[in-house]
Structures are given as structure tokens and as C-alpha cells.
Design a protein around this nucleic acid. Structure first.
Length: 761
DNA sequence: GACCTGCTGCGGCGTG
């Protein structure tokens, strides 16, 4: 950037913003800020700014947007800058950053989310304008409760800033936000320039289409030059070794009244991971990511006990979404202050947004599901100029003559390695497009009725589809069917003049505060110790008084369960197992599977693999070669045919359903398609039939899935719509057809037999 | 073989 253009942009900012820049001691603006400012100042286009964390995205958006607000003030207007973020904590952080920028500027700053008190709300309602920092849910509440005053509150809006944009596409919340932003434009009667702030994403064109549905190509995309941050990776591999005591021995010892130490019943390889974490992480700040909350609890407990037995200060703390706000904030504050060495063992809670400062290294237990998540996690590591450090820990089963072929392939190690390779290549997943989002559509219908006090079907079509974000996938017959079934459930009624109003049930739903949230929430019990809340535990399985569990990195006994208050009283205990939290599986991208195949074919272990990991890698390659999976990706494995399509989970699921439809049992097992048949000819004929006469749509296959209800308002959808929604969400028919063709030659070849597994005669 | 996110308006009562 030349001096001339620097000064040009700088001089166009409001004097108050210039003073703020001086106070920061900035000698120049960053290229992203230079590029964004003229576009935002002009106020006639949407802008998507994509950069790694801490790259000055917030300033790139706010310095010019606030400058526009200052100009409007000077013209005697009352401008509004609307900022939407996915996390309350992010709004609280941004509030303090913006306070400095607003010094000497007559703009009110209003954070607005569920924890914000009535006083601040009253102040904004009395004098709308300034900067409003809000969540999608609280914005929804405005439409529900202030439908006839929206113009008063939002009439002056000049820009909408969407922070952490990458968190939105593909989800219910994402669609809800798109709908609300469009409804806002409908209310003010003009296009409001949108500014999206995003981490690196796999496909910025799709992100732009998210930001401005129907017109993504008009969005100006500004991508920061990430620079060359060095990355140091190590991937450590462990083969399973048994615990010191078997389960039987442990039970026998407990029966005599003696206590069994947790270390004696924990697998040897798990303890080895603990020991390595303890050895390398002690003394500074780190994040250890685990894929599941119970893994977080297990390692937090093992490391805490290790600190105790070694008589050193405690510095390992758990952090996940079911822990109480207090416990989480204590850990966050300890990390941020940086006074005492601190390692948080966490789930994706510490992946995004909240300011915890940077940490020295990142550890990851188990293969991640998405490269984009790995990249986000890595973004937390590496102070300026220092390399980011990543350690991945992979545990695989020990190999015995009984070990199934799939486990011999060391899939988790190869998945983790493939993801690191893709990370190094700069690739990451693109958001999923093409979903119907009928659950969210139903919610928006109810919300629109609140806003306008009644709407016609024609109004709904115009608002949601013609100009709104549902237009790409929602058809008129679908909307008509949705409205019909909403009437059946008494969610809506039609007045004599054709106006749609809330039915009795619809009234109940919109009047409950849960209505603004568009994703489903499970019933959770609060855990108490000495009257102090420790966190929330989702209860799906049986839980009994006297049961032992690990929570918040400690061991507990359940003393009392109060179902009405949804409360569980605990007391400390020495035994316990981590609670199991339920959940559906992740979805791995096809590109990751392809990268795995490349690794198997090359047989060359990358240098960042530890000796143990290299050993597992070589075992995987050996099994792959022994069974000639490179040339024929199908093998007879006991009573089943095991097939390796090297495709996305969604594609394998679709293939399994295609076979199921023809009477052949098939399921996805890890990255394989397990076909419950030894009859190669029959499977080949089924594949040929699938290719030559494919089902008319993925919906035909989706009908075979009994568990389609997943989203909040799914229970209200009629079978056909639910089925269509599920098919668009979970299946990929074109992908499955492509892979079926690729697989077909293998089923024409002589299929080898897996070794090492006893044959049923 | 999963994780995360979020929540109004109003009445009643106590306190400074």
C-alpha cells in the first residue's frame, strides 16, 4: 500500500476515528482495513471480510461504518449501526473495544442479549440509534414484540455487521438470521449494506451468497493475506494397552470394600497420553481439544490427580458447554490474565470468539471431524512472530488375530494425517448449501404473523421466498402444504377475510420465551454441590441416587434428584466414570477421504508423525496393501462385504440406502460401506440397477430412514415435507451415483478375502 | 462417531 492511498483512506475517516487510531499508536492501517474502508464509506455495496483471528477485522468494519454514522449525526439524523454476533460473550467483549472508539462521539452503545437488563433496553427504546450489539434471537424478539414499532427502532439503520459469519451458513440460526435481515429491509423499504466478518472459509463465494441471498456475486470480497505463520505439527500415535486391573478384578476388589484407583482401571495408552500432556504442557498456557465432553472430563480428572500425586499446583481445567458459566469464566479469566500457567481441556467452546489471549500450543485428542475446526483451533496458538504449535494424539486398538480389517487400517490415524495435509495445503470445508430449513421456515411464519398481526399466504410467499432466503428451495406447493398442516396442528387459523392468524397452539408457542431460539434444546438438570451450581447435565439415560460420576474435573456421588426443580445434588467421591452426553455423529468431507486414500497409496508417512504414529501408519499401509485395496476397494470380511468408497459420510449413507432399497442390508461403518452379504453378483446387480435406474430423487431413499425428526419444529411437519427436508440435509444422490460408477469395476473383479479373521464355516 | 449457540414482558415484592 503506498503512502498516498494510506493517507487518502485515513483522511476520509471521521476525526474521532483518526484520533482513536493515533491513540492506538498505529503507524498505518492494515491492507484489509485499507481495502474495506472506501467500500463501506460509499455505503452502496455489501462487503465480506475474511481473515484469521486478530487481523483487525472488527476495526476494518467499524472505523468506516462509525465514520458514516458521525456524518449522519452532523446532518441531524439519528443513525443506527446494527451489529449481530452469535455469542453473548462476543458482544460483551466487543462492547469494551468499541467504547474506546466511541470516545467523544455522540453515539449510544447498546449491547442487547438475554443477560442485558431492563434499564439498558428502556434507554434504547426511548432513544433509538447509535450502535446496537445483538444476537439473532434478541433481534427475533424485536420482530415478535415490537412489530408495529420496528421503523421507529431501526429506521435509521445504515449498516448491518455480522460477526463470526462462518458460524452461520448451513445452520438453523444461520437461516433465521438471513430471514430477519431480509425482513428488516422489507420494513425500512431499502437495501441495507451488509458487512460480514469471517474466519477463513473453504468457499468465499458461498459465504457471499449467504450474506446476500439471491445476489452473492455482488458482494465485495476482501481476503486478508494471511502471511506465512510457521506451523509446527506433531502427530503422536499409541497402540492400546490394557489397564493394570481388568474390570472383573476391579469389581472383586471393590466387593471387599477397598477402593480402586482410577489410574488402575484406565487403559495404559490413555495414561501415556496423559503423561505426555503433563510433561509438555506444564508451566505455560495451552488448549487441549477433545471431541467429546466425556473425554474432556476424563483427561481433566486424570491430569488433576497427576498434579496432586506429583505435589505440584493444579493447572489443568475442564471447559465445555455443560459446565456452569462461573466455572467456565474462571478458567477463561485465568487464561487471559496469564499470571499462572493454565491449560484448558475443552470442546469447541474455546474455538471461537471469546478473548482468552493466545496460547503457546494446541493439543487435539482424537482425529477432528473438520479441517475448518482444526484451523480455527490452531488460530488460538502462536504469539506474533512465533510458530503455531499443534500436537495430535491418536489411539488405535491393539492388533490380535481377531481384529477386524477396518481397525487394522488405522482409519483414525489416517483421517488425522489427511486433515493435517489438507490444512497445510490451505484447504477447508465449504458450507453446505441447498437445505430446505422447513423447521425454521415454520418458525418464521409464526414470527411474521406476530410482526404484522396477521398475514396472507401471498404475503408469506413474497416475504419468505420471492425476496427472502427460502426462495432457492421452497416451492409454492410446499408452502401451501406447510400452511395446511400448521392449520391442522392449530398453529394458525384463517380468518374470514383470508388473513392468517395464530391458532391456540401457535399462540402458546410464540408467547413462550423459548420461541426466539430456532435450534432444539434438550432437557437438562442442574448439578449442585453445597447449593452452588456446577453445571448442566442433559439427562437421556437413567440416573440413580448413589450413582458415581465425573463432572467439572472432579468425582461425585449423586445424593438427591429433584425432578420438578430439575436439580441433582452431589457430594465428593473417590470413584466415578465420566457422564456420557448423547449426540449424533459428525460429517466428514469427501476431500478428507480422498486425502486418506492418497496416503494409503503413497505409503509414505509424513515427517511430523512420531515413532508410535509411524508404526500405526505402516500397519495401516501394510493391511491396505495385503488386501490390495488400492486396486480393488472391496473385500470379503467374514459375513460381509467391506467397501471403501473414499467418499463423504453423506455419500456413503446414501449408497447404503440405495442398497437397502433393493433388499441388501448396508450401513456406514467409519469410512467404509459395510454390506451384509457375501453375494458379490447380487450386490453388483443392485449397483447396476441403481446407476441405470436411479431413484427419482434422494427423497425416495430418505423414506427408508425412520429417524428424521431432528430440528425444533420438525414434529409439526407432514411426512412428505419432513422427508424432503431430511433428504436435502443428510443425503447426496448425485455424489452416490458418481461413487457407485467408480466402485462398479471392483464388483466385476475377483474379490479377495480378508485375512486374520476366523471364517464362519 | 460430536460439539456449540440462545431466551420477553410483566407483575409482585424487597431494598435503598
Amino acid at each position: 500500500m503506498s503512502d498516498e492511498s494510506y493517507s487518502t483512506v485515513f483522511e476520509r475517516l471521521a476525526p474521532a476515528m483518526q484520533r482513536w487510531i493515533w491513540r492506538q499508536g498505529w503507524e498505518q492501517l492494515r491492507p484489509t482495513q485499507e481495502a474495506a474502508a472506501p467500500l463501506i464509506l460509499a455505503g452502496d455495496s455489501d462487503v465480506l471480510i475474511s481473515a484469521a483471528t486478530a487481523a483487525g477485522k472488527t476495526e476494518a468494519a467499524f472505523l468506516p461504518a462509525l465514520s458514516n454514522a458521525v456524518s449522519a449525526l452532523a446532518r441531524g439524523e439519528s443513525p443506527l449501526l446494527l451489529y449481530v454476533a452469535p455469542l453473548k460473550a462476543l458482544i460483551n467483549d466487543q462492547r469494551f473495544r468499541l467504547e474506546g472508539m466511541l470516545e467523544g462521539v455522540d453515539l449510544m452503545l447498546t449491547p442487547w442479549h438475554g443477560d442485558v437488563g431492563e434499564t439498558a433496553r428502556k434507554r434504547f427504546r426511548a432513544q433509538p440509534g447509535g450502535v446496537l450489539l445483538i444476537t439473532p434471537e434478541s433481534l427475533e424478539a424485536f420482530f415478535v414484540h415490537q412489530g408495529n414499532r420496528l421503523l421507529t427502532f431501526f429506521g435509521g439503520v445504515q449498516h448491518v455487521i455480522v460477526d463470526e459469519l462462518h458460524a452461520f451458513p448451513g445452520s438453523e440460526r444461520g437461516r433465521q438470521l438471513q430471514s430477519l435481515l431480509d425482513r428488516l429491509e422489507l420494513v425500512v423499504g431499502r437495501r441495507i449494506p451488509r458487512i460480514g466478518l469471517s474466519a477463513t472459509m473453504g468457499n468465499l463465494e458461498l459465504a457471499a451468497e449467504y450474506l446476500r441471498p439471491h445476489d452473492g456475486s455482488s458482494v465485495a470480497i476482501i481476503k486478508a493475506d494471511e502471511g506465512e505463520q510457521a506451523l509446527r505439527v506433531q502427530l503422536r500415535g499409541y497402540e492400546h494397552t490394557p489397564a493394570r486391573l481388568s474390570e472383573k478384578e476391579a469389581i472383586a476388589i471393590e466387593a471387599t470394600g477397598s477402593e480402586v484407583a482410577i489410574e488402575d482401571v484406565t487403559d495404559g495408552d490413555t495414561l501415556a497420553v496423559r503423561d505426555d500432556l503433563f510433561r509438555v504442557l506444564r508451566g505455560s498456557n495451552h488448549l487441549v481439544f477433545a471431541n467429546a465432553r466425556h473425554t474432556v472430563e476424563l483427561f481433566a480428572d486424570l491430569l488433576r490427580r497427576k498434579c496432586q500425586s506429583e505435589k505440584v499446583p493444579q493447572e489443568f481445567f475442564p471447559h465445555h458447554g455443560s459446565l456452569s458459566k462461573q466455572l467456565r469464566q474462571d478458567t477463561e479469566a485465568r487464561l487471559k490474565e496469564g499470571l499462572k500457567p493454565t491449560t484448558a481441556i475443552c470442546t469447541s467452546t474455546l474455538e471461537m470468539g471469546i478473548d482468552i489471549g493466545s496460547v503457546e500450543s494446541i493439543a487435539q485428542i482424537g482425529a477432528p471431524y473438520q479441517v475448518s475446526a482444526l484451523r480455527q483451533r490452531l488460530g488460538r496458538s502462536g504469539r506474533r512472530g512465533e510458530p503455531a504449535v499443534l500436537r495430535i494424539y491418536i489411539n488405535e486398538d491393539a492388533i490380535t488375530p481377531q481384529t477386524p480389517l477396518l481397525d487394522r487400517l488405522r482409519g483414525e490415524l489416517f483421517q488425522a494425517t489427511a486433515m493435517v495435509e489438507l490444512l497445510l495445503q490451505g484447504w477447508c470445508e465449504a458450507p453446505r448449501a441447498g437445505r430446505l430449513h422447513l423447521s425454521t421456515c415454520l418458525q418464521q411464519v409464526l414470527s411474521l404473523i406476530c410482526q404484522y398481526g396477521g398475514v396472507t399466504a401471498r404475503d408469506l410467499w413474497r416475504a419468505l421466498a420471492e425476496r427472502g432466503p427460502f426462495g432457492r428451495t421452497l416451492t409454492k406447493p410446499m408452502l401451501v402444504e406447510l400452511l395446511r398442516v400448521m392449520g391442522e396442528h392449530d398453529l394458525i387459523i384463517q380468518a374470514d377475510d383470508g388473513l392468517l392468524l395464530h391458532g391456540e397452539r401457535g399462540e402458546q408457542i410464540v408467547n413462550h420465551y423459548d420461541f426466539y431460539v430456532t435450534f432444539p434444546t434438550s432437557e437438562e438438570f442442574t448439578l449442585y454441590y453445597k447449593g452452588r451450581p456446577m453445571g448442566m447435565l442433559p439427562i437421556d439415560g437413567p440416573l440413580a441416587v448413589g450413582q458415581l460420576l465425573i463432572f467439572a474435573g472432579r468425582r461425585w456421588r449423586v445424593d438427591e434428584i429433584d425432578p420438578t426443580a430439575k436439580a441433582i445434588m452431589l457430594s465428593p467421591s473417590s470413584g466415578g466414570t465420566p457422564p456420557l452426553f448423547s449426540g449424533a455423529g459428525g460429517q466428514v468431507d469427501g476431500k478428507v477421504r480422498e486425502a486418506m486414500r492418497t496416503l494409503y497409496l503413497s505409503g509414505i508417512a509424513p515427517r511430523y508423525l512420531s515413532r508410535g504414529a509411524k508404526l500405526l501408519f505402516e500397519q495401516g499401509v501394510a493391511s491396505f496393501r495385503t488386501h490390495e485395496l488400492g486396486s480393488i476397494p472391496v473385500i470379503l470380511d467374514g459375513e460381509q462385504l467391506l467397501c471403501l468408497p473414499w467418499a463423504a459420510d453423506r455419500v456413503i449413507d446414501t449408497l447404503a440406502l440405495a442398497l437397502l432399497r433393493q433388499g441388501i442390508g448396508a450401513t456406514r461403518e467409519q469410512f467404509a460401506l459395510a454390506i451384509q452379504s457375501r453375494d458379490v453378483d447380487r450386490v453388483r446387480d443392485a449397483l447396476v440397477a441403481f446407476i441405470n435406474a436411479p431413484p427419482a430423487s434422494a427423497e425416495v431413499l430418505a423414506e427408508l430412514v425412520p429417524t428424521q425428526v431432528q430440528e425444533k419444529y420438525d414434529p409439526y411437519l407432514p411426512p412428505e415435507l419432513l422427508n424432503a427436508d431430511y433428504a436435502a440435509r443428510a443425503l447426496d444422490l448425485p455424489g452416490a451415483l458418481r461413487i457407485a460408477e467408480e466402485l462398479l469395476p471392483a464388483f466385476k473383479a475377483v474379490i479377495p478375502q480378508a485375512q486374520g479373521k476366523p471364517e464362519n464355516v
